[in-house]
Nucleic acid binder design. Structure first.
Lengths: 352, 352
DNA sequence: CTGAAAGCGCTAACAA
DNA sequence: TTGTTAGCGCTTTCAG
């Protein structure tokens, strides 16, 4: 009676076939301790002929290992983009709690490099099993990444990345393309005259501008397809809704022909007061990202189109794929995971 | 030294606190064998005070249980809608293979009730742990569902459902809304005159017409928003590409003003030959579902818009959530999972 | 109706 | 460098 043939092979079967002990098999599988080249080969071949796949449940049960994952992301206020990211990470961690995965999220100030550095130092100290971050401060992120590499700690990027680095995984949209898509949606409907692009005041102040590629995607598309079209830009302060109203009204007074409005950051919702107060049947407004307030604006017919993807889903799958790699050793299918961009209108925004 | 307080509680802790043995705890947890009411209560209270959560890995390891899931779906040819569904099921099964889940997919002929009945009989015989199906033949599906209920076998629906039944889960889009979305996309761009709706000959032959709700969503939208607009219908035979060409050409000859074309089934790709042969800059074509051939048509600029969602992803999550419920006992968040409808244009179809 | 005990497949500490 | 062995937490006979 052949036992091995019938049921899925175990370490035991492998050890038998290779003529070694279970312990040795384990050693070659996970590279713990030294194994002679010869035995190594024998074990490896036994594994492949038996088509052995370790039982993850048994493994999980036996090793009371705890996995600590650290995320390093921008701090945020309620309802902002990174809150959704945060939610996705939390959910992923919950779904992996049976693998005793602990999650620690560190928040840095996007306007303060020092806070990034300080937090990265803390993370290094806690020697986690993996790190996920976004890449705003080019130099500091690189430095941090190199330190992680030295300690053998794998890391992944969300949202944006630094191509030269040896990251395990990246999840994000192609920001340039998303900008172009926004331009397409803004201009496809009817005759375009000029376009108003509303930006945030802080963009003009500090150098780290995460929205630049998206903006370029937008402007390039417009230049290519509507060379005669001019893009006006005004800057508003997210904290100052009255000021926003004034800026917008002033612009409209001076440029009564401009009916196309875009915001390439995630905060079109900042315009709702203005849009509500000054209805314009010819107006088309395009924004980005599925913040609740943006969705509300779409529902209310104030914003026509949102270019987005599930923000929280993106961070969710970032952490789950990364954890599967680190804990279960599953190689991700693609290193760069470009998330699909959804188009949201009032016709299809529910169930989103 | 308190052991229990520090680490996550185990059956052992529960048994201790309740003053019974591990076996008994197991019995009350999973209702195997009889337990006196009194002990039952004790165990239950111990569980809740300790906040005990069974370790799924240990459980999985100890019970060499195998789970058989059966899917009952329409048979298909290469490249058709249900092939994508099939793929999603297969992938889900692979990802759950560590839970020793076996998957058997049964295929019935959509034009032949008897084949549905026959296959449902086979499934009943194999007494699976769960069944997933779509609901085309109302009466027969209900009958089958009741038999499953009798045997205590849980079942889930994909794509469409029968509301009255006691299914565990449903995954699908709202077909009516998807039709309306298609109509919106077809008509939003520019002046609509009349619309050509292309349907499949078989639709007119047999009664089970899975596309009716979507079609109604489409026509209702058009009637509401463009009452003067007439929807012409022609029927083509999917097997007969020459005939299709002729039908289309004949229609175009008679109705040179009609530039808006829609197919509410998943096969707009059947029109590509015609569309390629007779270019029309004013033309707008809208289709449904992300078959590869449809995506090709979008890439080639022959079809403007596709209303869809990831077909295979839908079946994937159908099986995974269902399996999580059956195997791990995780209650799904929503019983009815309405999948979001994506809008695909040439600007955003890559990475889909 | 309840308890005791032998594993499930793997890991890790300890010997050799 | 390699083998041995005691568990990980739970399920499941088999006795009682």
């Amino acid at each position: 009676m052949q036992k091995a043939s019938n049921k899925t092979p175990t370490v035991f079967d492998v050890a038998d076939l290779a003529g070694v002990s279970r312990g040795t098999v384990d050693r070659v599988l996970y590279g713990r301790g030294r194994v002679s080249h010869e035995t190594r080969e024998k074990v490896l071949s036994a594994i492949s002929t038996l088509n052995y796949i370790p039982n993850s449940h048994a493994s999980q049960l036996a090793s009371r290992k705890e996995y600590l994952f650290c995320c390093l992301i921008p701090e945020y206020s309620k309802g902002e983009y990174w809150e959704y990211m945060n939610t996705g990470f939390l959910e992923a961690a919950k779904d992996f709690s049976s693998y005793s995965l602990k999650l620690e999220i560190y928040y840095y100030n996007q306007n303060d490099v020092a806070s990034f550095v300080e937090n990265s130092r803390k993370i290094l100290e806690s020697s986690p099993s993996g790190v996920i971050m976004n890449a705003v401060f080019r130099d500091e992120v690189s430095l941090f990444a190199h330190k992680l590499e030295e300690k053998g700690i794998p890391y992944a990027f969300v949202d944006n990345k630094i191509d030269e680095l040896d990251y395990i995984l990246y999840h994000g949209v192609d920001p340039y393309k998303s900008g172009a898509l926004g331009a397409y949606l803004l201009t496809a409907r009817n005759e375009v005259k000029d376009i108003l692009m509303v930006r945030l005041k802080r963009d003009s102040r500090h150098k780290a501008d995460p929205n630049r590629p998206r903006r370029h995607g937008f402007t390039d598309y417009v230049e290519d397809h509507f060379p005669q079209c001019r893009i006006h830009t005004i800057f508003i302060d997210p904290e100052d809704s009255e000021g926003t109203m004034h800026e917008m009204e002033a612009f409209a007074r001076k440029n009564p022909d401009v009916h196309h409005i875009v915001m390439t950051n995630s905060r079109v919702f900042l315009l709702v007061d203005y849009l509500k107060k000054h209805p314009d049947p010819q107006r088309i407004v395009v924004g980005f990202d599925d913040l609740d307030k943006n969705l509300d604006a779409v529902r209310d017919g104030l914003v026509d189109c949102l270019v987005t993807r599930h923000i929280s889903q993106q961070s969710y799958s970032s952490l789950t794929s990364f954890a599967e790699f680190v804990i279960l050793g599953r190689k991700p299918r693609h290193r760069n995971h470009f998330v699909h961009m959804d188009i949201l209108t009032k016709m299809n925004f529910d169930n989103y």
